[in-house]
């Protein structure tokens, strides 16, 4: 009783996010995720502050903790100064530490996020880059973005001399020494191991499901069981 709660309390984010919840539900009333998904941050905070290990483990294995968009709309609304989104962040971190995230459809998506964002950051130093927003993966971006993506060198040339080259400006190539520093920071601060851990657990789940890494990537990126909304 309380092992996971004690571990959550080691997380500064969690300590900032949960003081004492009186279950008023203001967070749920204002939450964009609660309006769309079968999701109730009030219930989550109540479950966590009950310190019941079984219940917290069930949360960490569920889709529930992955619905939050981390917009922080709950933060200025809580009359007790809690931030349910911070509690969610701490639960997600612990869920990934123990590999529980691969037990749920939404949790398994961390593999796609780790590969896409981790790849962009480690290779380019950006979370997003024009060359990586492929219209096939982003049909919602529309035909103007497809035109930009196809003619990126020429479109960006109107705004910068340094597109994909070293020097100041948008979407520049970050110099090799800065990239080496960026990667070393990930190594010494636990970021590389965090991404590797997501991949280890995910590939184990892919094997269980009889999928190649590529098939698993496509599956987690596109599959929606249709059971999440109200």
């Amino acid at each position: 009783m309380g092992k996971y709660f004690d571990e959550l309390m080691q997380d500064h984010r969690f300590r900032e996010g949960l003081n004492a919840c009186m279950n008023c539900g203001a967070c749920t009333a204002v939450c964009p995720a609660a309006e769309y998904y079968n999701y109730d941050p009030r219930q989550i905070v109540d479950d966590v502050q009950a310190r019941d290990d079984e219940s917290i483990e069930a949360l960490m294995k569920s889709d529930t903790i992955w619905y939050c968009g981390e917009c922080m709309s709950c933060r200025p609304r809580c009359p007790r100064g809690n931030t349910p989104a911070y509690v969610i962040q701490a639960l997600r971190k612990l869920s990934q530490k123990y590999g529980f995230f691969t037990e749920s459809e939404k949790g398994r998506q961390q593999y796609a996020l780790g590969k896409v964002l981790g790849g962009n950051m480690m290779e380019l130093g950006y979370c997003v880059h024009p060359t990586r927003v492929a219209p096939r993966m982003h049909p919602e971006q529309g035909p103007v973005w497809a035109w930009v993506h196809e003619h990126d060198d020429d479109v960006f040339a109107r705004f910068t001399e340094n597109y994909k080259k070293q020097g100041p400006g948008p979407a520049r190539a970050i110099d090799p020494e800065s990239m080496a520093e960026f990667r070393r920071i990930f190594d010494v601060s636990g970021g590389t191991e965090f991404l590797d851990n997501i991949e280890r657990h995910s590939l184990k789940k892919a094997e269980e499901l009889g999928m190649t890494p590529e098939e698993y990537m496509e599956y987690v990126y596109t599959y929606n069981s249709g059971t999440h909304t109200l």
């Binding site: 500064h12 984010r13 981390e70 962040q89 997600r92 971190k93 990934q96 961390q110 996020l113 780790g114 964002l117 981790g118 950051m121 130093g125 950006y126 979370c127 997003v128 340094n162 070293q166 020097g167 100041p168 400006g169 520049r172 970050i174 110099d175 800065s178 990239m179 960026f182 601060s189 636990g190 970021g191 965090f194 991404l195 997501i198």
Partner: peptide, 19 residues
């Protein structure tokens, strides 16, 4: 030009730890 992403999108997608 030496600055990089702050990692914010990765952090709020829970693939980059706070540290």
């Amino acid at each position: 030009p030496r600055h990089t992403t702050c990692t914010g999108i990765g952090y709020h997608s829970d693939v980059v730890p706070l540290e």
